[in-house]
Amino acid sequence: GRPPQPKSVEDLLDRINLKEHMPTFLFNGYEDLDTFKLLEEEDLDELNIRDPEHRAVLLTAVELLQEYDSN
């Protein structure tokens, strides 16, 4: 089946190999997954995450988090 739900933002970023963005998220108040899963493209602009590939991966991760919630 699906991988288990990540336990933290750090756990999530670790899985998608984008842990380099951890300080950015923490500094901007994305300390838990409840906050993280509200992330949208405009937020990525504000966080200055410009890499299109990173953005795509992050937004996909957000969608997956929302799916875990609805099940």
Rank of each mutant, 00 (worst) to 15 (best):
G1R: 10
G1W: 11
R2Q: 08
R2F: 10
P3K: 10
P3H: 12
P4W: 13
P4H: 13
Q5I: 12
Q5E: 07
P6S: 06
P6D: 11
K7Q: 11
K7P: 05
S8D: 09
S8N: 09
V9F: 04
V9M: 07
V9T: 04
E10L: 06
D11L: 01
D11E: 14
L12Y: 05
L12C: 05
L12D: 03
L12H: 01
L12V: 07
L13H: 03
L13Y: 01
L13K: 04
D14N: 11
R15I: 10
R15G: 09
R15D: 08
R15K: 12
R15A: 13
I16A: 08
I16P: 00
I16M: 09
I16Q: 05
N17R: 05
N17D: 10
L18F: 00
K19R: 12
K19H: 10
K19P: 10
K19D: 05
E20T: 07
E20G: 05
H21W: 10
H21R: 01
M22L: 15
M22H: 09
P23K: 13
P23H: 10
P23M: 10
T24A: 12
T24E: 08
F25M: 05
F25N: 05
F25R: 01
F25H: 01
F25V: 03
L26N: 06
L26M: 12
F27Q: 15
F27R: 15
F27M: 15
N28K: 08
N28G: 11
N28D: 02
G29Q: 00
G29S: 02
Y30T: 01
Y30M: 06
E31K: 14
E31R: 14
E31D: 14
D32K: 10
D32M: 05
D32G: 06
L33H: 03
L33R: 00
L33G: 00
L33N: 03
D34M: 07
D34T: 08
D34P: 05
T35L: 07
F36M: 09
F36H: 05
K37H: 03
K37P: 02
L38I: 03
L39I: 13
L39R: 02
L39W: 00
L39F: 00
L39G: 02
E40C: 15
E41K: 09
E41N: 08
E42V: 09
E42K: 15
E42W: 05
E42A: 14
E42R: 14
D43Y: 00
D43L: 01
D43F: 00
D43W: 00
D43C: 04
L44H: 00
L44E: 03
L44I: 01
L44Y: 03
L44S: 01
L44C: 06
D45I: 13
D45F: 07
L47V: 03
L47A: 04
L47N: 02
L47K: 03
N48V: 00
N48C: 10
N48A: 09
N48T: 01
I49H: 03
R50T: 15
R50A: 09
R50E: 11
R50S: 12
R50W: 13
R50H: 14
D51P: 01
D51T: 07
D51V: 06
P52A: 09
E53R: 10
E53S: 11
E53I: 06
H54P: 04
H54Y: 02
H54E: 14
R55S: 04
R55K: 14
R55Q: 07
R55W: 00
R55G: 00
A56V: 07
A56K: 15
V57F: 04
V57W: 08
V57P: 07
V57K: 15
L58P: 07
L58V: 06
L59N: 07
L59P: 08
L59Y: 02
T60C: 09
T60G: 14
A61I: 00
V62D: 05
V62S: 08
V62T: 07
V62N: 06
V62Q: 03
V62W: 03
E63G: 11
E63L: 06
L64I: 08
L64E: 15
L65Q: 04
L65A: 05
Q66T: 09
Q66G: 10
E67V: 10
E67H: 11
E67A: 12
Y68L: 12
Y68R: 14
Y68S: 14
Y68K: 13
D69F: 02
D69A: 08
D69E: 13
N71Q: 14
